[in-house]
């Protein structure tokens, strides 16, 4: 049972981390608490669903389609809503409220277009029969989720360290004003980060939709709160931190539900968060973040 619980923790932690990767990028680089992030999860899943059902695409093509569509939607939303605020040097919190309005707008529109009911990807897109490996029962989609998270983290590291856009993104994250002076195209970086983070969130949406067979307009919302906790504990903009904190939260939740009491699952996660913040006010990895560097 312990082996299975550890595996459950790995899967849940990976789902958390997957959601947090793009979130930490947009929060850390663009310095924006973007509540629309939860919407991109559903947008990606719905776009992939439409691709499978109406365009007749296969799973991988549909997935890519969903990811690109969500990325483009994010670039447009960012340009329409957040860029004007950036230009006006508006207070940080105004971006939070503008995305709050944005979420209301987009979720309601999505419900009008797609309806309120829960949908699912057609059965048998991916084998759903679990296989037994030693003491473990494992479903194929779970392996896909775990693999995706680790591949994405590796790719993100490579991208941030080795590509020009990645370097530019890091420069903007550290010193937005200096970066602009040094000739970094800030507009391009902003668009790039918006696209990337929404694409990551859409990946999470599609995989979660496949894993739990449920796609609906509000599927991203319940993940937002845990997402906040993860990226703050992990450090804003810290990819490795998001992975570690996501896995840690998954572990904590599964172990609490499995061995203590499922009643306390949610409370334990947040009690740990509060204690963690109290003991390490600057996040797990001690990086100073937020306004005061």
């Amino acid at each position: 049972m312990l082996a299975q619980q550890l595996f459950n923790a790995l899967v849940l932690g990976s789902v958390h981390a997957l959601f947090a990767l793009g979130f930490t990028l947009t929060f850390g680089v663009l310095r924006v608490i973007n509540l629309l992030y939860g919407f991109y999860v559903a947008a990606g899943a719905f776009a992939a669903l439409v691709a499978v059902q109406s365009l007749g695409l296969g799973l991988w093509a549909a997935g890519a389609f969903g990811v690109v569509v969500a990325g483009l939607v994010a670039v447009v939303c960012d340009f329409l809503v957040l860029t004007p605020l950036r230009r006006a040097k508006a207070p940080e919190l105004s971006s939070l409220i503008v995305t709050l309005g944005g979420v209301l707008l987009m979720n309601s529109l999505m419900q009008i277009v797609f309806g309120a009911e829960v949908r699912r990807f057609p059965a048998r897109l991916l084998g759903q029969d679990a296989v037994t490996i030693g003491p473990l029962v494992v479903a194929p989609i779970q392996l896909v989720i775990i693999a995706t998270v680790f591949v994405l983290v590796a790719l993100l590291f490579w991208f941030m360290e080795r590509t020009r856009l990645g370097t530019a993104i890091r420069a903007v994250a550290e010193r937005p004003d200096t970066a602009a002076l040094m000739g970094v195209n800030v507009g391009l970086v902003v668009a790039g980060v918006s696209f990337l983070s929404a694409a990551l969130s859409a990946t999470a949406g599609i995989l979660i939709g496949l894993n739990f067979n449920a796609v609906h307009p509000y599927m991203g919302e319940p993940m937002m709160l845990r997402g906040f906790a993860i990226i703050i504990i992990g450090g804003l903009g810290d990819i490795r931190g998001a992975l570690v904190a996501g896995l840690a939260l998954g572990f904590l939740e599964v172990m609490t539900a499995g061995y203590v009491s499922s009643n306390l699952k949610e409370a334990v996660a947040f009690t740990a968060l509060i204690l963690g913040l109290w003991l390490r006010p600057n996040g797990l990895f001690g990086r100073a973040s937020g306004k005061r560097a």
Partner: peptide
């Protein structure tokens, strides 16, 4: 007796315990 939230999507820890 096991509980979960209406918003939960993952029930694996509770179910693994029940299986045993």
């Amino acid at each position: 007796i096991e509980t979960f939230s209406v918003k939960d999507t993952d029930f694996s820890p509770q179910l693994t315990k029940i299986k045993s």
